[in-house]
Simulated scan of single mutants.
Amino acid sequence: MTATTLPAPPRRVSPGATVSQTLTLAWRSLVQIKHNPWELLDLSIQPIMFLLLFTYVFGGAISGSTGDYLQFALPGLLVQNALFYTLSTAIGLNTDIAKGVFDRLRSLPIARSAPLAGRIIADTFKQVWAFALLIGFGMVLGFRVTTGVTGLLGALALLVVVALAMSWMSVLIGLTASNPEKVQMFSFSVMMPLTFTSSALVNPDTFPSWLAAWAGVNPVTHLSDAIRGLLIGGEVARPALISLLWAAGFMVVFAPLAIRVFRRRA
């Protein structure tokens, strides 16, 4: 008997098939929430907890009024939450690699970029959910969007674009770290200083001069100021432009590095 040789899977995947495979894997990431509801709870409870704590514990001391502080801090909390949630992309990728999911996907005739792109797209939908949740809960507490629907949608679009660009740094960390615990530890050591040494939660005018100088160039400051202007009024064009330039810089620096590491591992 002559052994039958199976045809090798195609080396190149068409653009249409790549898009289809990416969306399928994005759906896989979203469906996992049904089997792991704690992921949705983390996504929902943590931002609400931060909102309540900062508003009612620190609001009176910082602004003299919890209502005034809520109006100031909610845009910054939106930024903080979006950037912290990029860590879930890194942790998810690292977990998939550690559990051998990427080894199984690599054996399939699919585009190598599909697993990475699929997870990023799924996390974008989660970002939108977290944004809507914080805005809705904030409005229950008394927050008011004074710029209308246009400002609200503009804030969402800017936040998602910048968060996606900055997520490439988290992706690189997730692909290079040896386990999810190290991903979380290293990522928090980067994100915490960025968010807390900015205008996200307090006015940088109260900082020491050296820290105020850093806050003036901190990308989180410009993004927080832009989101604040889009939601409650104020300067928008300059901080939004600087935020987009920072986003482009993160993409240019970290995306090629992350893709190179991803291709080696996947």
Results as ranks from 00 to 15, higher is better:
Leu30Phe: 01
Val31Glu: 07
Val31Ser: 09
His35Ile: 09
Asn36Gln: 14
Asn36Trp: 10
Glu39Arg: 14
Leu40Phe: 14
Leu41Phe: 15
Leu41His: 10
Leu41Glu: 09
Asp42Tyr: 13
Ser44Phe: 10
Gln46Tyr: 14
Pro47Lys: 06
Pro47His: 08
Leu51Trp: 01
Phe54Tyr: 15
Phe54Lys: 02
Phe54His: 05
Phe54Ile: 09
Thr55Trp: 07
Thr55Gly: 06
Tyr56Glu: 08
Tyr56Trp: 15
Val57Glu: 04
Val57Ser: 10
Val57Gly: 02
Val57Asn: 04
Val57Lys: 02
Phe58Gly: 03
Gly59Thr: 01
Gly59Pro: 02
Gly60Phe: 09
Gly60Leu: 09
Ala61Pro: 05
Ala61Asp: 12
Ala61Leu: 13
Ile62Lys: 00
Ile62Val: 15
Ser63Met: 10
Ser63Asp: 12
Gly64Trp: 07
Gly64Ser: 08
Gly64Ala: 08
Thr66Ala: 13
Thr66Phe: 07
Gly67His: 06
Gly67Val: 00
Asp68Trp: 07
Leu70Met: 02
Gln71Pro: 00
Gln71Trp: 00
Phe72Trp: 08
Leu74Trp: 05
Leu74His: 04
Pro75Arg: 00
Gly76Ala: 03
Gly76Leu: 02
Leu78Pro: 04
Leu78Val: 09
Val79Glu: 01
Val79Gly: 00
Asn81Phe: 06
Asn81Ser: 14
Ala82Glu: 04
Leu83Cys: 06
Leu83Asp: 03
Tyr85Thr: 12
Leu87Trp: 01
Ser88Ala: 12
Ala90Gly: 09
Ala90Trp: 07
Ile91Asn: 10
Gly92Ile: 02
Leu93Pro: 00
Asn94Trp: 08
Asn94Val: 09
Asn94Lys: 08
Thr95Lys: 11
Thr95Pro: 03
Asp96Ile: 07
Ile97Val: 14
Lys99Arg: 14
Lys99Gly: 10
Gly100Val: 12
Gly100Ile: 11
Val101Asn: 11
Arg104His: 10
Arg104Ala: 10
Arg104Gly: 05
Arg106His: 12
Arg106Glu: 10
Arg106Thr: 10
Pro109Val: 08
Ile110Phe: 06
Ile110Lys: 00
Ala111Val: 11
Arg112Trp: 12
Ser113Tyr: 12
Ser113Lys: 11
Ala114Thr: 07
Ala114Gln: 07
Ala114Ser: 15
Ala117Arg: 08
Ala117Trp: 11
Ala117Met: 13
Arg119Leu: 15
Ile120Phe: 05
Ile121Ala: 13
Asp123Val: 06
Thr124Leu: 13
Thr124Met: 11
Thr124Gly: 13
Phe125Ser: 05
Lys126Ala: 07
Gln127Gly: 15
Trp129Glu: 10
Trp129Leu: 13
Trp129Ala: 12
Phe131Tyr: 15
Phe131Pro: 01
Leu134Val: 08
Ile135Met: 12
Gly136Tyr: 03
Phe137Met: 11
Phe137Arg: 03
Phe137His: 04
Gly138Ala: 02
Gly138Leu: 04
Val140His: 02
Gly142Asp: 06
Phe143Asp: 02
Arg144Trp: 04
Val145Pro: 01
Val145Ala: 00
Thr146Glu: 14
Thr147Glu: 05
Thr147Arg: 05
Gly148Arg: 06
Val149His: 11
Leu152Arg: 00
Leu152Ile: 05
Leu152Phe: 13
Leu152Ser: 01
Leu153His: 04
Leu153Gln: 05
Leu153Ala: 09
Gly154Gln: 02
Gly154Phe: 04
Gly154Asp: 05
Gly154Lys: 04
Ala155His: 02
Ala157Glu: 04
